[in-house]
């Protein structure tokens, strides 16, 4: 990695401006939510249901929550990769606008046919925008995004990470490398490269 920082002065977006899942209070949020500030006036033990009644029935507000399926959507993908730290700056890909919500696309591989019972195979395409056009770290950033997604998503996802057209001089070669699953697998077994990737993914822990 070049020691003098290539782009010493990237524009930085404030974290609260980054797209986030609006905290819609779910239609029937549990009693605690409803009181907001005043929930402190009700002691915690008042909420535990009567131990005698068998808990499954009295737990009703939880069980029907359970059936609502929350599909994996673009925002969830964004939340997975935005906190990755840039190899060059102590900043995240989200705040550097290297990854952006509109550049994430989810499309089913086969037309949704009722026949196949298992959940649909989905193609996930993520376009990344390097901070400057000849950034040599574009491949490493692309690899970091791909590794994070492959470790965090179920195996029915086909992860395609690409450089956005017109944003990088050697986009074509980088995209070909990032698309070659065998080369990616081999890269993951290379100790030094994995060290770099692990440092980049450190930011994702505990978010």
């Amino acid at each position: 990695m070049s020691d003098e920082t290539l782009n010493a002065n990237p524009a930085i977006r404030n974290t609260s401006d980054l797209p986030s899942r609006r905290r819609q209070t779910s239609p029937h949020s549990s009693k605690q939510h409803a009181l907001g500030l005043f929930s402190s006036t009700v002691p915690a033990c008042a909420y535990s249901p009567d131990p005698f009644t068998s808990s499954t029935s009295s737990d009703e507000e939880n069980s029907d929550d359970d059936d609502i399926v929350e599909p994996i959507d673009e925002q969830e993908i964004y939340d997975l990769i935005a906190p990755i730290t840039d190899p060059e700056h102590p900043l995240t890909l989200g705040s550097l606008s290297v990854v952006n919500l509109p550049d994430i696309h989810l499309t089913p591989l086969f037309p949704p046919s009722s026949s196949s019972t298992s959940p649909p195979i989905t193609v996930l395409t993520v376009y990344i925008t390097p901070t400057i056009t000849h950034c040599s770290l574009a491949t490493v950033i692309g690899l970091g995004v791909r590794v994070r997604l492959e470790q965090a998503l179920p195996s029915r996802f086909r992860v395609d990470v690409r450089i956005k057209e017109g944003t990088h001089s050697t986009a074509e070669q980088v995209n070909k490398q990032l698309g070659d699953k065998e080369r990616v697998a081999a890269a993951l077994e290379n100790g030094t490269l994995m060290g770099v990737l692990r440092k980049m993914l450190k930011g994702c822990e505990g978010t």
Binding site: F110, S116, S118, P119, I121, P154, S155, R156, R158, K181
Partner: peptide, 9 residues
Amino acid sequence: NDGAHGVSE
């Protein structure tokens, strides 16, 4: 035969 190994490549 599609889905020969479930969702796996």
